[in-house]
Design a protein around this nucleic acid. Structure first.
Lengths: 223, 223
DNA sequence: AGCCTCTAAATTATCGATAAAATGAGACGG
DNA sequence: CCGTCTCATTTTATCGATAATTTAGAGGCT
């Protein structure tokens, strides 16, 4: 497996937020396995920033929930037990279902157009095998969709739980087939937005979460 | 109104967490009005800590959601628009209702005993007019209750939203009558835990939130 | 008076250095 | 051979000082 030291990030100027984002990406692409230790010095060497920023980035990651810190012992990439995964997904389902139920239907053309654009970009990324783009457009699609519920706090919480489930979703990025299925789900969601049935939309949003959860739970149970 | 400088905190040793807690208390008791500016130097003088800790405490408060920071401009106590209050309470109701529904009924005697103890302490605090204690035992009561749902992540989110609604709940601390009503609600909840009807319990938990929300919204609408 | 500009004061952001704590390796005694 | 005690090394926590930014107000111009 690739270690943290093999990844170098010269030339780019980093602040604590961009470091956090870079590491977030490493986690979803499996370059950083859960449990990996994250020392300040390593970040310092990789990103060529002062200790201050490396430290701040770790704090960021901690509040984002993707890293765990122990006093005087530093940070490790959070690793999730099946139990925790189940808990996180139960809450995700709760939040996303309610957001879907609160979206006024039929949705305005403006929103449909925006989502369609994201959807097409997502499709192109899938076919091109450009995983970074897939992840980015996927998250943007869902956040845009759920924002239509009108409750920004709910959306924020949804975002939090999307990040918490990052390591779970990492698995599903590897197979183009599952990405295509996910893409198809998105198309259906857009169709539903044109209709009037919130319950169908909500169910779709919940079902959409199942594959990566099941895949992950199956994966850990056989190891 | 009392300003931040009037409050002094000698003798006690503070770290960033205890500072955050102290300020949290100031907010719920109305000593720190929403919108109040929070400069590092002020905290520094009040708590006799280094700049480092004062700063860290502010970051803490930011992630707890009770303070807003703007780059190069410092922090102010978060002030909530009626719209935001409504959003926060909608999510609170969603989370707490679901937690109540997930609690296995009837609850084990152990839990009943623990809650009863907290309930009695809460009652004593109310009658003694010891507001700090009221707030503390109140939050502890609810967190203990909701923990019984078995989903620690859900409980964490509930805790987050309890903090977000701190300025809203501040109002209700002032009248002993409303504290007594709240206390009575708690008693009913314990009764419900002995039964088998999750729906009644859930409804009770949701209703319990209404008074302080309504009071706050009424208050801001007439100003 | 109204308005722009420039300066000084206040405040936050960043840095490099030092202190404190944990970790691991090797020495020593049982 | 095993435990454990000490010390060197690694890593995080804390500090004080300096840099950068914003804010407010004085002074001058039209």
């Amino acid at each position: 497996m690739q270690t943290l030291d093999d990844i170098s990030e010269d030339e780019i100027e980093h602040d604590d937020l961009s470091i956090a984002r870079a590491l977030e990406e490493d986690i979803i692409f499996g370059r950083l396995a859960p449990g990996t230790r994250l020392t300040e010095d390593t970040l310092l060497a990789r990103f060529h920033v002062t200790r201050h920023f490396a430290r701040q980035a770790i704090v960021q990651l901690e509040t984002m929930g993707i890293v765990v810190r122990e006093r005087n012992k530093g940070a490790t990439v959070r690793s999730l037990t099946p139990r925790q995964v189940q808990e996180i997904y139960d809450v995700r389902e709760l939040l996303q279902r309610q957001a879907a139920l609160w979206i006024p239907l039929p949705a305005p053309d403006e929103l449909i157009a925006e989502l369609t654009a994201l959807h097409e970009e997502h499709g192109r990324n899938v076919e091109a095998g450009y995983l970074r783009g897939v992840h980015e457009t996927n998250d943007k699609f869902h956040l845009t969709l759920f924002s239509a519920c009108g409750n920004s706090h709910l959306v924020q919480s949804i975002e939090l739980y999307m990040r918490l489930s990052l390591p779970v979703r990492a698995n599903s990025m590897s197979s183009k087939e599952s990405l295509r299925i996910s893409h198809e789900h998105h198309r259906l969601m857009i169709e539903m937005l044109k209709g009037r049935d919130n319950w169908v939309l909500a169910q779709l949003c919940v079902d959409h979460l199942q594959p990566s959860k099941k895949r992950y739970l199956a994966y850990v149970s056989e190891n």
